[in-house]
Design a protein around this nucleic acid. Structure first.
Lengths: 249, 249
DNA sequence: CGTGTCCTTGAATGGGGTCAACCTGAGTGG
DNA sequence: CCACTCAGGTTGACCCCATTCAAGGACACG
């Protein structure tokens, strides 16, 4: 398990975490990205009232596997991970949620997944109930949520293909391709080896070996622990081969 | 690849397949199960007009990987599979869709997945456009779709955990548990060995071996090729162990 | 009775897991 | 400034499980 016991309860009153009513939806950094974009400007005030803004520090969990968690999270900046643990101790990352993404259970109910922050992450939290009420008034909200859910479903299935059929080399290559936006030059490795392993359904050692193999083959270079440079995009695509699609998270 | 070339086009005019306007939504077998259940009775007529009922025979594909397929399918009876192929020939089943379930792309766009019938399957087809129009008038439709999507996302992620972390024994056991509703007695194996393999991310041989091992251990019996009897539910749950959740499809 | 499909079983192979040692770099404290 | 610690990463040796390749069985069909 990666993240220690600095867990905060979803509704934790006395948490050390900054918390404030959503103050500035209208000027929000991701106004255009998130589900909020579906809302007409004049209705944003209602979102303010039911949402809470919060900072989640690296490693903190928002929702714990098995929790009753009737809430919806909206990521403003940073990155959340959605994961589930096998009782043998190993953990599988089931999804990554970046700026504009959402997670949670619009209809409440028990989660099978832990939601935690991979890095410091700014989020908006809504209670499922109040969100549902608001969505009844503004159906666009649900339309937007539906779109996102379907997109997420697609990405999840694409990754599923990789987990079901991909070799270690293919999985790691696909991950790297995913980390590579468009530009060349050094890229950040947003995940540690361990997290890459959790995501790819591999062990740390295998991930490490695959990376060194790629380095030895001249496909990438690894200037530092948490950066990499793509030297031969074609080769990497060939290795990921079967699974060239982007957008795994 | 399992299913031959008896593919029908989504809008194929001259197909050999039975096709008729949705005639009796009000008395539909799954009126209460499907997304239609969200519609008030007096609005069902509108669904009639935009939907087509169709029979999909075992092995027939409705949508082909890579198609532009702006349609929504609703399963009345039978079972659809959602799958995607790796270029090395192996195929991964990404989801099973039973009575009441839906598949497709409410907002159109290219699919990465093939939709095909595992067994003879009765479906309703709606065009995305017209469905969207109707959904604008009846927001409950989208709410219902959203619920289903989120449920599907959950199940997909649960299965993903299995693909990422489960051993062959665990995967097969989980599949069997899933096939077992509640009752004891002989159960139908709705999937062939090959399909089970496609679903579990294994090979036919491995699935077969796991089944014989379970039989040898007295956990199940295999009276015929496509039935099994659960003799020791506890044991099976223990083997599936890490992944006791039901409802994988 | 032959043919084809699906399934089972066996033997050999190899990819990734496991275990263990070691390396590297960032703190930390003397 | 150096010694120490500790987390994260790398590397190696070994082993096991699932794949692969191959052969043969069960059953339905013409």
């Amino acid at each position: 398990m990666y993240f220690g016991n600095d867990i905060i309860a979803a509704n934790g009153a006395a948490s050390a975490v900054a918390e404030a009513p959503v103050s500035k939806c209208a000027t929000c950094e991701i106004r255009e990205l998130a589900i909020c974009s579906a809302m007409p400007s004049d209705a944003l005030g209602e979102l303010h009232r039911i949402g809470k803004r919060r900072m989640l520090h690296k490693g903190q969990a928002l929702v714990w596997e098995g929790d009753e968690a009737p809430l919806i999270v909206n990521v403003l900046s940073g990155m959340l991970k959605l994961s589930s643990g096998a009782r043998n101790g190993s953990e599988q990352i089931l999804g990554l949620i970046g700026p504009g993404g959402f997670a949670g259970r619009p209809q409440g109910g028990r989660t099978g997944q832990t939601i935690a922050a991979l890095i410091d992450t700014e989020i908006c939290i809504f209670s499922s109930d109040r969100f549902a009420q608001l969505a009844d008034l503004h159906p666009e909200l649900r339309t937007s949520l539906l779109e996102r859910s379907l997109g997420e479903l697609d990405r999840t299935r694409r990754w599923m293909l990789l987990l079901g059929r991909g070799s270690a080399a293919e999985r790691v290559a696909a991950l790297l391709i995913d980390f590579t936006g468009e530009g060349a030059g050094p890229h950040l490795l947003p995940l540690s080896r361990g997290q890459m392993a959790e995501f790819a359904g591999l062990t740390i050692e295998t991930v490490s070996r695959q990376l060194t193999r790629l380095k030895a083959a001249g496909v990438i270079s690894l200037p530092s622990r948490d950066t990499f440079e793509l030297l031969d995009r074609e080769a990497l695509l060939t290795i990921a081969g079967v699974f060239p699609e982007h957008g795994l998270h």
